[in-house]
Design a protein around this nucleic acid. Sequence first.
RNA 1: GGAGAGGUGGCCGAGUGGUCGAAGGCGCUCGCCUGCUAAGCGAGUGACUGGUGUUGAGCUGGUCCGAGGGUUCGAAUCCCUCCCUCUCCGCCA
Length: 462
Amino acid sequence: MLDLKLVRSDPDRVRDAMKKKGQGIDLHKLLELDRAARETRTSVEALRHQRKQWNPKKIQGYLAEVLAGRSSLADVANGVLDLPENQPILAQIESGVLELGQGAGQILGVLGRRRKAELAQLEKELAELDLKVRDMELHIPNFPHPSVPVGQSAKENRVVRECGVKQEFRFQPRPHWEIARSLAMIDFDRAPKLAGSGFILFTGPGARLERALVNFMLDLHTENHGFREISGPVLVNRDCMLGTGQLPKFESDMYRIESDDLFLIPTAEASVTNIFRDEILDEAELPIYLTAFSNCFRREAGSYGKQTRGIQRVHQFDKVELVKFVHPDTSYDELEKLLETAGKVLDLLELPYRVLLLCTGDMTFASAKTYDLEVWAPGMDSWLEVSSCSNFEDFQARRARIRFRGQDRKVKFVHTLNGSGLALPRIVAAILETYQKEDGSLAVPRVLRPYMGGLEKISPTG
RNA sequence: GGAGAGGUGGCCGAGUGGUCGAAGGCGCUCGCCUGCUAAGCGAGUGACUGGUGUUGAGCUGGUCCGAGGGUUCGAAUCCCUCCCUCUCCGCCA
């Protein structure tokens, strides 16, 4: 979410950003609604203010003034005592039928009921306007950072660098699904019996490789990169999804538990970033680095037939996520560091990869700048996205109200970042295709061996 | 699932239907004092938001006491629903 004041004062910048990102809203309409809401708010607040001025003692005081002849009705309480409905009450007080206190009470009732009716209508209008403004606000994408290339599709992403060397094979490298099948690491035949297609059933060495990767990555990030490990729910509520920007736009992309209105997280970002929702942190606590392993769930509706061969695109996968909460001044340095942190995993696994700077049109809704890491998969002769590292600046922080108190005592929004470190199935695919041997066996990457009981090679068992 | 207790500011914790954004404390900020530190003394210290404006100075309003409804002229305070926390019981991986 952007600062509405900024949207008001510089709508052209917002229009430009929406155009570059290829998504957005009718800004003119938003500004109209916003203006109407503010006008209505002014009226509502004036009425409320007046109402707050009234209490029995005050009214009684006014009446005493009037009865003593020191003031006229029109002169006290902004003249509101001078209503026709009040005349009979005043007459009763004067004639001694009502005591002063009782009379004041009745008059207060008259004033209050009149004001209540006036307010009810306006408050309803205001609530409706606020809701519309809020809804539109939530659909404005984040500004892309000036360093992000402008473009419409993935074709215009920029390759920043390539790391590692693609190895030469003396044989035709096979795709990972063939290797996984022959080594009994993934059971493609029985998996659909459990939850349909798009779910992976790792078996034997495949399952162990998965677990080894998870442990390796978590150890690396906690021991060498300063991250604190988190293990949280994979189901989160609507507020969380709103906070990180999955909602309201992407509801249909997620699995939802209807009975409790909870969502299966598409990424641990959704649970981890929301840990500090509605909090005011201390500046001294920043930066905060968190890492979490989680299962991730994506409906991937409409993507059938596209890159779905093997384990490239599935409904459930495992991922180690990296999340940072940082001071706004440092967030772009932190993004570069995050990219290195994620890349380190691939370096150590000795898998060649490339770094992409996403163009404006290929970035997500909430991101200001995103780098993708793509690992080389020789069997498929293609690059696979295994990490996406983004700086959201204050976009998520504003939605989720994650703030910090600066040294100047002022409250500001933190900047949030996250990156995969890394997504597992595609790493498994890359390992299978990269470490395959001509005899059909698979070498175990050196850094994973301690996590696999010293195993150096996985061979077909027949 | 059943019974009970509770949810108040950065934190802890008072609060009788009207002047309560809310006592007190802690923390924090500034100042004093102390040859350092601690303690002590004094002052200040919520968030969000409308208007105005020297456009995040100042001034002036409004909202917020778990969330949402309701009663009332008026609700932190009374009623209802929901959520969450704690204690006890039951059930269970």
